[in-house]
Design a protein around this nucleic acid. Structure first.
Length: 205
DNA sequence: CGGCTGATGATCT
DNA sequence: GATCATCAGCCGG
């Protein structure tokens, strides 16, 4: 398989909420020594400035500094000491925002991902941010990687048309918990989270 | 199914 | 020392 061309940074929406919606249907591609694996993004969450749930809320630190970079870089951190989370930096340089990639539909390299995740159903390979990272062997060594450039990890345009995009509150947070900053492809079986969150349709904007 | 809980470690206070 | 943007496994219905 010839790895497809990355998204151009200029094509990424400046607004981080718009970026979170934009990323639905895009592919995340991972390079391995013996091939590639990829998934079609079906669920994202936006983390903004003035957002108490965001790691960037209290300003830059060594961990979150990638959130303050230009758009399209990988912000990766370890959650609960157990799972890695993959985010795409958003907002202009100096603005601490990002988009958490929460789930994807496996597209290629399913054998590779099964080797990393165990003998789980395809539906569960990338359903949830920690599972997605594990399926792509993502860890801190990809933190700061340019996702708009071929390398260990990058983003490409998807081919399948995107269905209706739903919106809900974010999962697993307590502060600023009411904000509607989670986006997902309605009806996709590859979306994580409880069923009651996966119904509503995103309002026009 | 849905609900609960322990594991596990970096980060920041 | 407290706080987590989670997950797998176990339990009950």
């Amino acid at each position: 398989m010839i790895p497809p061309e990355p998204l151009k940074r200029e094509s990424l929406p400046k607004d981080t909420v718009a970026l979170a919606k934009f990323l639905i249907g895009k592919l995340v591609v991972r390079e391995f020594l013996d091939g590639f694996a990829s998934g079609r993004i079906v669920e994202t969450e936006a983390y903004l400035t003035n957002d108490a749930a965001s790691h960037s809320y209290r300003g830059p630190t060594p961990r979150n500094k990638v959130m303050f970079s230009a758009p399209g870089y990988a912000y990766i951190y370890l959650s609960y000491g157990v799972s890695y989370m993959l985010n795409v930096s958003g907002g202009e340089e100096g603005i601490g925002e990002g988009v958490l990639i929460r789930a994807a539909e496996p597209v290629s390299g399913i054998g590779i991902m099964r080797r990393l995740r165990g003998d789980v159903p395809i539906r569960d390979l990338m359903r949830g941010p920690g599972r997605l990272a594990k399926a792509l062997s993502i860890n801190l060594s990809q933190n700061g990687v340019d996702l708009c450039r071929k390398g260990p990890l990058w983003l490409v345009q998807g081919e399948k048309p995107v269905g209706e995009v739903g919106v809900s509150v974010r999962i697993g947070i307590n502060r600023d918990a009411h904000r509607l900053l989670r986006f997902f492809e309605r009806g996709s079986p590859f979306v994580s989270g409880p069923a009651f969150l996966n119904k509503s349709i995103a309002s026009e904007s």
